[in-house]
């Protein structure tokens, strides 16, 4: 709708506006990169300079020299990885049932999924804590993977239902005419065809679990299980926050996720688009 502005000035104004908004979204991220890459001395200069004057890897040395951070990276990958795999395996068959199969419990299943999506996650944190204590799994990977899966699944199912619905029905029908059962139709036809959608959904699950803070902060007590999100705020000396180390640690987490998002950017947009169209 803004595409063909009648006047040149309208067009200029439009680009100025959209650039201002882009600056607003990415400048804090650029600032984070700057904070991570300058020397601790320059970080303290007041007033702060916009452009970095030194290039210094002290902050990166600090974080990678810290055993807690190294194990936190591993913990994040393990927790997010398991969350993704479980979400995709449980979510994809449920999504297929909801998208393609007519079974009597379809309505109740849909409303239960909606109930999870709309219910505040934290309302159950105290009872979950109690339950996990009884099961003896507090401060284990499971204690984070289970709630992560719980709250990532509604979006997983929502996106996968949209992907499965987008596939032409004819292919599956043809498979059924050839004598395939619904199970075979799903595993041999639908799933292989929707690999791009499944990968995109998995990426969103991974990002969700890798950036999750509340459950990790509640259920993980020490560096054997704490993921990076819990460790980052802890970079501080006795007297002051080490902003440089925090920024460097944040970059180490953000950059791989950013690369993944950029690589799958087109698919994420079309995936969410497909999901939201209904």
């Amino acid at each position: 709708m803004f595409g063909d502005f009648e006047t040149r000035w309208g067009k200029v104004l439009f680009y100025v506006l959209i650039t201002v908004f882009v600056l607003m979204t990415i400048s804090p991220l650029l600032w984070m990169a700057k904070m991570a890459l300058v020397s601790p001395a320059e970080l303290d200069v007041y007033p702060p300079k916009i452009l970095p004057e030194s290039l210094d890897f002290t902050s990166f040395k600090t974080i990678f020299g810290d055993a807690r951070f190294r194990s936190a990276l591993v913990n994040t990958v393990v927790i997010a990885g398991f969350t993704t795999v479980i979400c995709l395996s449980v979510g994809s068959i449920a999504a297929y049932a909801l998208a393609r199969l007519k079974f009597g419990l379809r309505g109740p299943v849909l409303s239960m999924i909606l109930a999870v999506a709309f219910f505040p996650a934290v309302a159950i944190i105290a009872p979950l804590f109690l339950q996990f204590t009884n099961w003896g799994i507090v401060n284990t990977y499971q204690s984070m993977i289970i709630p992560d899966v719980l709250f990532a699944l509604p979006l997983t199912v929502y996106l996968l239902v949209a992907y499965f619905r987008e596939l032409p029905l004819d292919i599956e029908e043809a498979a059924k005419v050839d004598g395939a059962s619904p199970m075979q139709a799903f595993f041999r036809v639908t799933l292989p065809l929707s690999i791009p959608g499944v990968v995109t959904t998995g990426l969103l699950c991974f990002i969700f679990a890798a950036t999750e803070f509340l459950f990790a902060n509640t259920f993980a007590f020490d560096s054997s299980t704490q993921p990076v999100t819990v460790i980052i705020p802890q970079f501080a000396t006795q007297y002051r926050t080490d902003y440089g180390a925090q920024a460097a640690a944040s970059m180490v987490v953000t950059i791989p996720l950013t690369i993944l998002v950029l690589a799958f950017q087109r698919r994420i947009v079309s995936g969410l688009t497909a999901g939201a169209v209904k």
Binding site: L29, M32, P233, S250
Partner: peptide, 24 residues
């Protein structure tokens, strides 16, 4: 694509990571 991606970036970054910047 660049514009879309730049709006998406804060969403995929952990709150914890961004909060350090905002604090500062």
């Amino acid at each position: 694509t660049f514009f879309r991606a730049s709006y998406y970036l804060p969403y995929v970054t952990a709150s914890v990571a961004l909060i350090g910047v905002w604090l500062w």
